[in-house]
């Protein structure tokens, strides 16, 4: 019994034989993947390889895309997130997402961070303030905005806006954070801040990041998954992938010799 409990706690996310289609276009071809809690996993691969589609499967972001279908299961804490009793809103509270371009709401910084709580019906001012400060601190933005929480989020720099979006994600206390190229629109200093943040956040969260920046993948992640044409070509410890990849395709891709 003890063994079984340990076994079931081993992985935060498990994907089992995932196939996905846009209409008849087969975009994910039988992917199995286990992701440990409190880890950073990087998804790499050329455009159109299926990595973003796969990422979006983890919080059911593809559900409303016309013609999208999938087979196979994704388990979060051993529970199938595609089971009929799962509420998508509840799932997305558990699995937060940060996008390529910062997408703050055209509201104040404070309203942005507390938005998720408000739609959950939390109105107590001190609760909201407490959460706002905690989330902004976690997102390493607090010191820069604490005196100006009423300022429009759109007045922040790109890097600050992205950290605000991370704070907004953290405010609803997810356990998994999906990041789809979170630093690709940012300058190197803001990128460094986001990467440092990812490193700190993995203490509490399980993070998956899609990136086209090989050095970013090698810097921030514990494990790296290389996707190519809908298949998971190689998945292993980041150090191993970047020092000694087992598959020639991986080697060619990460060393810039593809095609």
């Amino acid at each position: 019994m003890v063994n079984r409990v340990m076994e079931t706690n081993k992985f935060k996310i498990q994907a089992k034989d995932i196939h996905a289609y846009y209409g008849t276009h087969h975009v994910i071809k039988g992917i199995d993947m286990d992701i440990k809690p409190n880890s950073v996993t990087a998804f790499i691969g050329p455009s159109g390889c299926g990595k973003s589609t796969f990422l979006r499967l983890i919080n059911r972001m593809n559900d409303y895309i016309e013609g999208f279908t999938k087979t196979g299961d994704i388990l979060l804490d051993d529970k199938n997130i595609y089971a009929s009793n799962v509420q998508v809103e509840q799932l997305r509270k558990e699995v937060g997402m940060v996008f390529q371009k910062p997408n703050p709401f055209p509201k104040s910084i404070f309203e942005n961070v507390t938005y998720g709580l408000k739609i959950q019906g939390i109105t107590n001012k001190s609760d909201l303030e407490e959460t706002a400060e905690r989330s902004l601190r976690q997102a390493a933005l607090w010191e820069e905005v604490k005196d100006d929480l009423k300022k429009s989020a759109l007045a922040l720099s790109g890097g600050q806006q992205q950290r605000l979006c991370i704070a907004r994600t953290l405010a609803v206390e997810p356990s998994v954070i999906l990041m789809d190229e979170p630093a690709s629109a940012l300058d190197p200093i803001s990128t460094a801040k986001i990467e440092e943040l990812i490193f700190e956040l993995k203490e509490k969260y399980t993070i998956i990041i899609v990136t086209h920046n090989m050095q970013q993948a090698s810097r921030v992640s514990d494990r790296t998954a290389f996707f190519y044409m809908g298949e998971l070509i190689e998945y292993g410890k980041t150090k191993q992938i970047f020092l000694n990849p087992k598959k020639e395709k991986t080697e060619n891709y990460i060393s810039g010799r593809f095609g």
Binding site: M214, Q215, S218, F242, L243, N244, P245, T250, E251, I254, S255
Partner: peptide, 9 residues
Amino acid sequence: FSPVATDLR
């Protein structure tokens, strides 16, 4: 070039 894999080794 930030070499990786065989190049790095």
